[in-house]
Design a binder for these strands. Structure first.
Length: 273
DNA sequence: CGCATATCCTGACTGC
DNA sequence: TGCAGTCAGGATATGC
């Protein structure tokens, strides 16, 4: 569910609400929530530490613990991070709860499908070195993007989804980016002209920036919520995602749904090439 | 290397 | 109303 814009929105919420607070206690109840290390180890390393800063790389979110270690979180398909009063009822699938000294709000990790995870690691984030460039946090120019595409026979959809190449783009934003760039998802990457690479570069920046400004996308199931439990607004600006049969906002042709790179992919068959 | 498939799960939705 | 089947924003392993 959450892609770069949603994770960035949650990161900003944690920055505003919990940075500067000292962890009073950590409760891990989900059996799969902490799986790279014993849950007790995470509890011990986090308890007593101050949330000193936040960061994001692709879809991974992290919090500095005393500026000495990092608490890394990934929401995967259904994870939510929520700031709620400690007295509030816990919803089903609440797998982790962080309480803080002098902060009336606690941080809860809720994840029905249990694909999400938490772990504590070093500030150099060795688990994240495999990730490719972050299109928002890193300065990625059109030439750098062109080098990532060069010589690859893989299609654009698979490439945009490959976290080892570009980190943070998921199924919704890949489709929205490719529509904006007027490029088909099944187009082999190495066939792009310089001007098409430039268009793709502009579309990545524009779509992700607009989606962050809109605080992310909440689909019909309302599963994505920000730290305050509020829905995002970027779904109102979607041009292709989940719009099969509806008219293209650029040329009027019916949007179609294909499977590309094993994922549902929406595109305009007339104005994407 | 690239690609399809299966897998980890729960829940919402569809069609009978 | 119930029930089976399908699908879902992600990431990874496997086999061809």
């Amino acid at each position: 569910m959450p892609e770069l814009p949603e994770v960035e929105t949650v990161r900003r919420g944690i920055e505003a609400t919990f940075v500067g607070s000292r962890v009073a206690s950590v409760e891990i109840t989900g059996v799969r929530t902490v799986r790279r290390q014993p849950a007790d180890e995470l509890v011990m390393r986090a308890t007593g530490s101050v949330f000193t800063r936040t960061g994001r790389r692709g879809k991974y979110l992290w919090v500095g613990l005393d500026d000495a270690e990092a608490l890394v979180m990934h929401l995967r398909m259904s994870g939510q991070l929520l700031a709620v009063p400690a007295s509030a009822d816990r919803v089903a699938h609440t797998h982790a709860v962080f309480r803080f000294e002098g902060n009336p709000l606690e941080l809860r990790f809720v994840d029905p499908r249990t694909f999400g995870e938490l772990f504590v690691t070093g500030l150099d984030l060795p688990e994240l070195v495999r990730l490719g460039v972050d299109p928002i946090a890193d300065r990625v120019g059109p030439k750098a993007l062109g080098r990532l595409l060069a010589g690859r026979s893989t299609n654009l959809k698979a490439l945009l989804l490959d976290q080892g190449v570009i980190a943070g783009i998921g199924n919704i934003y890949a489709d929205e980016i490719l529509w904006r760039a007027a490029l088909r998802p099944d187009r082999p990457a190495r066939t792009l002209s310089d001007s098409e690479v430039a268009k793709l570069h502009r579309a990545i920046k524009a779509i992700l920036t607009a989606a962050i400004d809109a605080r992310g996308s909440s689909l019909a199931d309302q599963q994505y919520r920000d730290l305050e439990g509020e829905a995002g607004n970027y779904q109102l600006s979607h041009r292709v995602h989940a719009r099969a049969g509806q008219p293209c906002r650029r040329c009027g042709e019916s949007i179609v749904k294909l499977i590309v790179a094993g994922r549902s992919s929406y595109l305009c068959p007339r104005c994407q090439y």
